[in-house]
Every structure is written in structure tokens, then in C-alpha cells.
Write a protein that binds this DNA or RNA. Structure first.
Length: 293
DNA sequence: CAACAACTATCAGCGACAAA
DNA sequence: TTTGTCGCTGATAGTTGTTG
């Protein structure tokens, strides 16, 4: 499935989430109200390059997590009563929750699932922080630099008027322009990384904890994360990772990179941080992404 | 000139894939 | 295999254009 352009089509993730919804409905005899969405998504994936392989991958991954989902829900039903409704949260509640699928119990409490389906290995992005969250949590405002990046690119292209989107496409289609834009953008990646690195270490311990708790979405007792890839199924409850009293949280740049760093919790490397443009270096907004180590 | 449409920019979710 | 780098998608908020 080597097709960079459509590598992580959203439809695949949505399709996977709906398979899980459907399965839960089937298990507990609840109405599945997303049949049409599921059919649409299936068709959408099929017309992509290697569409059949894409569907097959999702179906195979799905089979692997079925018993786990059942195990969790059987336990939760013991606590919260039977499942009466299944809600496809999808991307409707960005920031508020990372849940993709909610099972509602008869007592109105929910059991929530954040689900990641990965073709090969890895655990996926834990969080992708846009400018808003970078400013919120780290107090770093990078808008001036971002404007400057674009102004330089515009000067190079000798086009001060065209919409960014148009210029972006133009640059993407031309290797020479793209090379220039990438070089231009890289400087800012490094600068933002440095700013965020220092900002993080300057935060009070409490604010560091707030930030990391946001990263893991670990304030929700009802949430489970399920990651499935080619080698295994990883399940955890984010709330179990909630940071309480700790001695030290520190960002360290012990790696080779100048666009990332690691965050150590009590001396243990726990998170990797990446500072990048979100849609291509030098031609899009900056962000930070956080991964498990 | 308000109301609606169309277009633009940003954000954050998704996770692929290359390098080490 | 593990670690590091980074792009695509679609929702939404914001902006500009159009029309009755």
C-alpha cells in the first residue's frame, strides 16, 4: 500500500470506528444507526488505490480487537448496567475528548474507546498540538514567525497577493520551489522547537502535569485506548497514566534531532515531542506532536 | 445591505514510512 | 526493531464575494 498521497485516508479510520460500533451493537442487541455511513465509507475506500487491501487491513485489525472490546464491556456492564446505545463520536469532540466510540449504559454512564488501527508498527500520534494549544499550554506564540516564513516565501516567489493555498500548490508541484520553501521552513521548525523546549522546562510542575494530563486525555475514567497494529493489541486506560505526585518532569535534548526532544518523568523517558509543519515543511502551519516512547 | 454562498486558513485527527 | 520525521484529510471558523 505504498501510496503516499492517500496513505492515511480518513475514511479508513472512520470505517474502522464504525466496525467497532457495529460490533458493540451486535453484541448487546442495540440498534446500529450508522449503516449508511458504513456503506458509504466502504465504497469510498474501495475506489482508492489498493482499496481492497485497505479494507482488508481494517477488517483484519478489527478481528484482532473484538475479544478485547467484549472483555472490557462485559466488565463495564457489571459496573454500569447494560449497554443501551452506541454513539459514533468520531471527530465531533476534538480537544474535549479523544474518544471515537461511546457505549452508553442504562445508568447513563459511558464506556468510551479511542481506537487506533495501524498497518505496521507503532502507536500512532498521541497528540497533535496546533498553535492554539501550543499557546495555551506552553505560552509560545509563533504567529509572527509564521507570517515571516510566508513573507519570505512570497518574496522568493515574487507574489505578495495570491492566497496561500494557491502558492502552496504551486510550490508542491515544483521541486525547486519546494526545496527552497523547505529550507526556509526548517529554520522555523528549529526555532519553535527551541522555544517550546525552554517554555516547557520553565513551566511550574503543576502546569507541566496539567499539560501532560491533557496529552494523554487522562481525566476521563470511562476512557480506554486500544491500539492495534501488525504485531499486537495495546490497551490502556489513560486515567491510569494520570500523573500525581512526582519528583521531576524535565524535557531533555539527548537525541540527535533539533526538531524534537524527550520528556522524562522521574528520570524515565516517557514522551517524544516533534516540532514540524503540519502539512509540509515551509508551506503550512507549525505544530507539535507527542508520541509514547 | 442583509443573507447566503463560496472560498481561505487553521487546527488536530489520522498514522505512513525512512533512517538509524 | 526502534526512533525520528512529516504529509493527508476533513471539520470549522473566518473572510470575501454575490445577489435579491
Amino acid at each position: 500500500m505504498k501510496n503516499r498521497k492517500v496513505k492515511s485516508n480518513r475514511a479508513q479510520a472512520d470505517y474502522f470506528e464504525l466496525l467497532v460500533c457495529q460490533y458493540i451493537c451486535h453484541l448487546y442487541n442495540v440498534t446500529f444507526s450508522y449503516s449508511k455511513d458504513l456503506a458509504k465509507l466502504s465504497n469510498k475506500i474501495l475506489i482508492l488505490p489498493d482499496g481492497k487491501a485497505r479494507l482488508k487491513l481494517q477488517n483484519n485489525n478489527f478481528i484482532k480487537i473484538q475479544p478485547k472490546i467484549k472483555e472490557i464491556l462485559d466488565y463495564e456492564i457489571g459496573q454500569k448496567g447494560k449497554v443501551v446505545r452506541v454513539i459514533w463520536v468520531g471527530r465531533n469532540l476534538l480537544i474535549e475528548t479523544t474518544s471515537d466510540v461511546d457505549a452508553e449504559h442504562i445508568n447513563k454512564q459511558r464506556t468510551r474507546f479511542s481506537i487506533k488501527s495501524i498497518a505496521n508498527t507503532g502507536t500512532g500520534t498521541l497528540k497533535n498540538l496546533g498553535a492554539r494549544q501550543i499557546k495555551n499550554f506552553l505560552g509560545v506564540d509563533f504567529s509572527k514567525q509564521y507570517e515571516e516564513m510566508w513573507l519570505k516565501l512570497r518574496n522568493y516567489l515574487n507574489d505578495l497577493g495570491a492566497p496561500q493555498e494557491k502558492l502552496k500548490k504551486k510550490v508542491q508541484r515544483n521541486q525547486k520551489l519546494l526545496k527552497w520553501a523547505t529550507e526556509n521552513g526548517r529554520k522555523y521548525q528549529i526555532e519553535l522547537n527551541e522555544l517550546c523546549f525552554n517554555a516547557f522546562n520553565s513551566l511550574s510542575t503543576k502546569k507541566k502535569i496539567d499539560f501532560l494530563n491533557f496529552i494523554t486525555d487522562c481525566n476521563d475514567d470511562n476512557l480506554y485506548v486500544i491500539i492495534v497494529n501488525s504485531v499486537d493489541v495495546i490497551i490502556y486506560k489513560p486515567i491510569e497514566k494520570k500523573l500525581k505526585i512526582i519528583k521531576s518532569i524535565e524535557a531533555k535534548k539527548d537525541k540527535l534531532t533539533d526538531v524534537g526532544y524527550a520528556i522524562y518523568i522521574d528520570g524515565k523517558p516517557t514522551y517524544r515531542v516533534q516540532t514540524n509543519n503540519t502539512n509540509g515543511i515551509g508551506i503550512s502551519a507549525y505544530c507539535q506532536r507527542i508520541f509514547w516512547i
